[in-house]
Nucleic acid binder design. Sequence first.
DNA 1: CACCCGTCCAGTGTATACAGAGTGTCGGCA
DNA 2: TGCCGACACTCTGTATACACTGGACGGGTG
Lengths: 248, 248
Amino acid sequence: MRASERAHEALRREIVEGLLPPGTLLGEVEQAARLGVSRTPLREALARLVSEGLADQTRGRGTVVSAVSPADVEQLFELRIPLEVQAARLAARRADPTVFERLAARFRTAEQQGPEPPDTSAAAGEGLDADLDDAASRIEEYYALVAAMDAAVDDAVVNPRLVAVMQPLRTHLARIRRLSHDDPQRLRRSAEEHAAICRAVVAGDEELAAATTLVHLRASLAHIQHALGQHAVARPVDTPSPTEGSAR
Amino acid sequence: MRASERAHEALRREIVEGLLPPGTLLGEVEQAARLGVSRTPLREALARLVSEGLADQTRGRGTVVSAVSPADVEQLFELRIPLEVQAARLAARRADPTVFERLAARFRTAEQQGPEPPDTSAAAGEGLDADLDDAASRIEEYYALVAAMDAAVDDAVVNPRLVAVMQPLRTHLARIRRLSHDDPQRLRRSAEEHAAICRAVVAGDEELAAATTLVHLRASLAHIQHALGQHAVARPVDTPSPTEGSAR
DNA sequence: CACCCGTCCAGTGTATACAGAGTGTCGGCA
DNA sequence: TGCCGACACTCTGTATACACTGGACGGGTG
């Protein structure tokens, strides 16, 4: 693997995981030394991070990890919603149904045997750590499932350019997820919503796939904004309240 | 201006103008020498071109100017349509009406005093060159007007990330335009459609802005595909046939 | 005491030199 | 004559050294 790729991947991971918090100055010499590469490939990595929006560059002054204000989140979804809706439409037309049938089943089980009933509020007893670990591992597992579905959509969409644009957005989302703590209720709902999208794709119903995707993303946005303590007065613009148009 | 920016801009221009036709190998040493910069900034420029989709890079083998197949055009519009529709929605909500009123007026005049009636088919007489020059300059002028509107939309949208994604797509479009020769009839229609979008934005009618944008882009795509001799059987997926939802 | 200007310095931006990988070609062999 | 293998070459990928811009700090002046 090329050094520039390694550097990019390492920095990306650290930014997403919060090890490099927003506002951190990414000095070229410093980071190059730390990651064990030269400045040349590191500069390439920084340029990629900037183009993905994970970092901001100011002429001659350096590169800093980008901030994630509530306004940023809203703008991110203003871009993400139409793209994911479009991807869902394309998937509904082109996907292999069996793949999404399997995904729907997995989401169903995740939804049912999902995180235990909200007894997590005031956990007591010795099993606490074990429970937490278990919950954390389930959450990780769930996100892996979501990633699998994203991959399936990317595969079904065929359009490489569309996929290329969505990829960095998902990275951003992963970063934002770290901030808004994941509560079990929301995860169950999320699993439901994903299952609904899968069913629509299986049925080849473009309109329904678009609608379910919109429902999911709006709910996701609302949850994140709630977690960030910002309740937007105006909803982000996207597809109109999904009307039952000509179902194909 | 930085050398890497100059190199990027120069290569971008040459690719768009067709001086560097699809498939051209962009050797690093060769281009660096030609543009009068070193390999380091040139590599940055190439990386940006690749991220914009104007060039393709194959590991260890080099960088070539990307091709524009009919399939590419379709995929481009599958991405572009939802983005521009979204941008139109946001503009309708946030734009300064006076700006778009002025743009609408300019499109109106362009539409009326536009390229002379299709007598261009079999031009005869000595005024030929002058006429052609005149037509060409008008076409340039028209595209400048379109660019002004794009800039106004970008300004109104506020969302920098959305703008950043749309920018390269417009560059692609400019490149494709070179291939599909612009005929006067289509330009007049285009002016009409743009004027309609402007009016919708002025009225703050989100639904109408989305619908008129969809109409314009579908027509544009159809024209390009016609010019490329490829009539797609399936229409590209995008927003549903615009329904009159809750007008705000 | 506040403001402005000059100098110093850190860090980016660029150039060049070196190493490694991939490819094309030439020669030998079946 | 066709195919396989090895060699050499050219190109990319990386490292390092140099130049220059932008900013911060200190001194001088109004």
